[in-house]
């Protein structure tokens, strides 16, 4: 049974992420009063990109071609550590969330280096912003996970997002609520969403993540887009389990989990529709604010 669930989760991890992008875009189009692209459009986009060839600039080296591959592999391996629907993850051990965060860091490292390999000032700017904001988001993410660890009394992601969670909501509700808000903010920042970054912007000077991947095309771009949606799915999974972790029985908690992930995508779409993006100088304030919230949540639990 458990094995079946794990296999199901891994399949969902690989298959569902582009759907989330579709849901986000559909939500935005509804808010804008448009019909919008079909829900499955991201899959079609990926299929199209995979069939295309890629063009490389004369300045690039193997680092540029390795960037998308390492980035996707790292995010996918991080997915192995994530517990979904309350079942233990494929790979879980005490302190695995450190590995989870550092694998995401590896993906960022590879993407930023690939950006610098083009020798373009725009991509350098994007890489600088990405690593700057990531280095501020990282402590905030760890603080949130510490809150979870303290509230559930376990040190692995599977434990934190596992069966101990409903009880933790009873005993440490306010702290978990603060942590959930902080995780949502971090998810928006890490996935380059409004209000931190606008995935649909057309002005290179204001971009963060998008400008880093300007020179990638064809299958490389497909890897990058798929990796980005995978990362969105990972954060959606954490948040869904964190907020809705109350299902009784395997089936109910699975259903609740996938519903929660979809709700997360809708939430991201709503935020993108109703908010403007922040000025770049305000982004560190937002991320430090998330850290401060989660420090407060942690202190509530530590006293």
């Amino acid at each position: 049974m458990l094995l079946l669930r794990t296999v199901l989760h891994l399949a969902a991890l690989l298959a569902l992420p582009p759907l989330l992008l579709g849901v986000v875009n559909r939500t935005k189009s509804i808010f804008a009063g448009r019909v919008g692209p079909p829900l499955l459009q991201p899959y079609l986009d990926l299929a199209k990109l995979l069939r295309k060839g890629a063009v490389y600039s004369r300045t690039t080296t193997w680092v540029f071609r390795a960037g998308p591959i390492v980035g996707l592999a790292a995010v996918a391996s991080a997915g192995l550590l994530l517990s979904m629907g309350g079942a233990p993850a494929a790979l879980s051990f005490a302190g695995d969330f450190v590995l989870f965060a550092y694998l995401l860091g590896l993906a960022r490292f590879a993407t930023a280096l690939a950006a610098l390999d083009t020798g373009s000032a725009f991509e350098g700017m994007g890489a600088a912003r990405e690593v700057t904001f990531a280095s501020l988001a990282e402590p905030a993410l760890f603080l949130c996970l510490l809150v979870l660890a303290r509230a559930t009394g376990t040190l692995s992601l599977s434990g934190m997002l596992g069966p101990a969670l409903p009880g933790a909501w009873g005993s440490a509700g306010p702290a978990l609520l603060l942590a959930a808000i902080a995780v949502f903010v971090i998810a928006l920042a890490e996935n380059s969403r409004i209000p931190v970054d606008d995935p649909n912007t057309h002005l290179e000077l204001t971009m963060i993540h998008e400008v880093m991947v300007l020179d990638h095309g064809g299958p490389d771009l497909a890897f990058i887009l798929y990796g980005a949606s995978l990362k969105l799915f990972l954060f959606g999974a954490i948040l869904s389990r964190l907020v809705l972790g109350r299902g009784d029985g395997a089936l109910a908690s699975e259903a609740l989990f996938f519903l929660g992930v979809l709700c997360f995508a809708v939430g991201v779409g709503v935020v993108e529709s109703v908010m403007a993006r922040l000025r770049i100088v305000r982004v560190p304030q937002l991320l430090v604010g998330a850290s401060v919230l989660s420090v407060f949540a942690l202190v509530l639990l530590l006293r």
């Binding site: 304030q285 430090v288 420090v295 202190v299 006293r303």
Partner: peptide
């Protein structure tokens, strides 16, 4: 940012 950090330090010490 510094005022937020200072505030957080104060809150942490208080709690």
């Amino acid at each position: 940012v510094p005022s937020m950090v200072l505030g957080a330090v104060g809150v942490a010490l208080a709690f």
